[in-house]
């Protein structure tokens, strides 16, 4: 965000110490979040898969160009996710020979857990920054033990697949609230 400001004038950003500190802080915050957002975009692409350039375009659009990563650094991140078995890739054999990325089965489970944790964390810390965060409780259940994000539309849903917690009680409470 801070990198977008080109003219500092006499503003705080003119101070090198301030600028360095803020830049470093921003990149620390962005590191994990951008990885999670990249995973979210790949997860939403389902079986069609998605290539690197498309991922960055969606990232820019969906985050109103707030979350910007240096484009070249996307590919090392994708490679690491691939090495960890979270995503897989397939290169086009004809045409532009772009590489398409897909979630693996294990990757989907990890993504559900991390996104659940991140959602609950964002909700929990929202009051510290005086912002409102509302989770899609109508569609998801967040495991009370580990924060794993579970889709309520799954009729077979009884246990959290990450920690094994029985969530029937939560499901019942939600039904009664309706």
């Amino acid at each position: 965000m801070i990198k977008r400001v080109k003219d500092y004038g006499n503003a705080l950003l003119a101070s090198k110490e301030f600028r360095n500190f803020v830049e470093k802080f921003e990149s620390e915050i962005n590191r994990g979040i951008s990885k999670l957002c990249i995973l979210s975009i790949i997860a939403q692409s389902n079986s069609a898969g998605i290539h690197g350039y498309q991922i960055l375009k969606i990232l820019e659009e969906k985050t109103d160009e707030i979350l910007i990563i240096e484009e070249g650094t996307l590919y090392p991140i994708l490679r690491k996710l691939k090495d960890d078995g979270i995503i897989t890739s397939k290169k086009e054999k004809i045409g532009r020979k772009r590489t398409f990325y897909f979630m693996t089965e294990a990757g989907n489970k990890i993504y559900n857990y991390i996104s659940g944790y991140f959602s609950k964390l964002t909700e929990a810390i929202s009051s510290l920054f005086d912002v409102q965060v509302s989770l899609r409780q109508d569609r998801y259940i967040f495991c009370p033990m580990c924060a794993n994000k579970l889709d309520r539309r799954d009729k077979e849903l009884r246990f959290c697949d990450v920690c094994g917690h029985n969530i029937e009680k939560e499901l019942k409470e939600r039904s009664e609230m309706k």
Binding site: G52, Y53, E71, G72, Y75, R79, K91, K97, R98, T99
Partner: peptide
């Protein structure tokens, strides 16, 4: 593969 991907991008 890495260089191809960057080039394509």
């Amino acid at each position: 593969d890495i260089l191809d991907e960057l080039r394509e991008h």
